[in-house]
Amino acid sequence: MKALITFFLSGIFCVHFSSAQLYLQGQDLEDGELYIIGTLTFEGEPYTGNAIAYHDNGIIKTFREFKDGKYQGIWKEWYNNGELKHIRNYRQDEPSGSWTTYTQTGAVLDEGDDDHLFYTPFFGDDNLDDGFEETSPSFTSDGKTMVLARYKEWERKIPFIAHKEDGKWRKERLRFVDTLYNLTINPSGDRIVYKVFDEAGGEKVSRVFVVDMKGDQWGEPKEVLKLFNLNAGYFHISPDNTLFFFARSPKTGIYMSRPKGKNLYSKPRWLGEEVSLPDSDSFDVFMHPQKHKLIVSQYYDEEKYPDLGEVGLYYYEKTGKTWIRKKRLPLSYGWGPCITADRKFVFVRKGGIQYISLDELGISW
Rank of each mutant, 00 (worst) to 15 (best):
G131I: 02
D110G: 07
K164P: 04
E172K: 12
D178W: 11
S188Y: 00
G131H: 04
T140K: 13
M146V: 00
R173K: 14
G131P: 03
D190S: 05
K157V: 00
N186E: 01
P187T: 02
D113W: 07
L148Q: 04
P121W: 05
S188R: 10
V196M: 14
D142W: 07
L109A: 13
T145R: 14
E111L: 06
S188P: 01
F118K: 11
R173H: 09
D142K: 11
H116W: 05
K171C: 04
E133S: 14
G124K: 11
Y194M: 07
F118R: 08
P187L: 11
R173A: 06
Y194V: 07
G189N: 07
F118Y: 15
L117Y: 09
E165I: 13
D114R: 04
S138R: 10
E111Y: 00
T140R: 13
K164S: 05
N127C: 07
F176E: 06
E134D: 10
Y181M: 01
E155W: 12
T145Q: 14
D125Y: 08
H163C: 02
K152Q: 14
E111Q: 13
K152P: 01
Y181I: 05
D130Y: 10
F176P: 01
G112K: 12
D126A: 10
K157F: 02
I185R: 10
G167R: 07
D113H: 06
D142Q: 05
F123A: 01
N186Y: 01
P159K: 08
F176Y: 13
K171G: 00
N186I: 04
K195W: 02
G189E: 11
F139R: 11
K157L: 03
W169C: 08
F122R: 07
N182P: 05
I161H: 03
L109C: 05
R175N: 09
E134A: 10
E111R: 09
F118M: 15
G131F: 04
V193H: 08
E172S: 13
F139M: 09
L183V: 00
L128W: 12
E165T: 12
F132I: 09
D113Q: 08
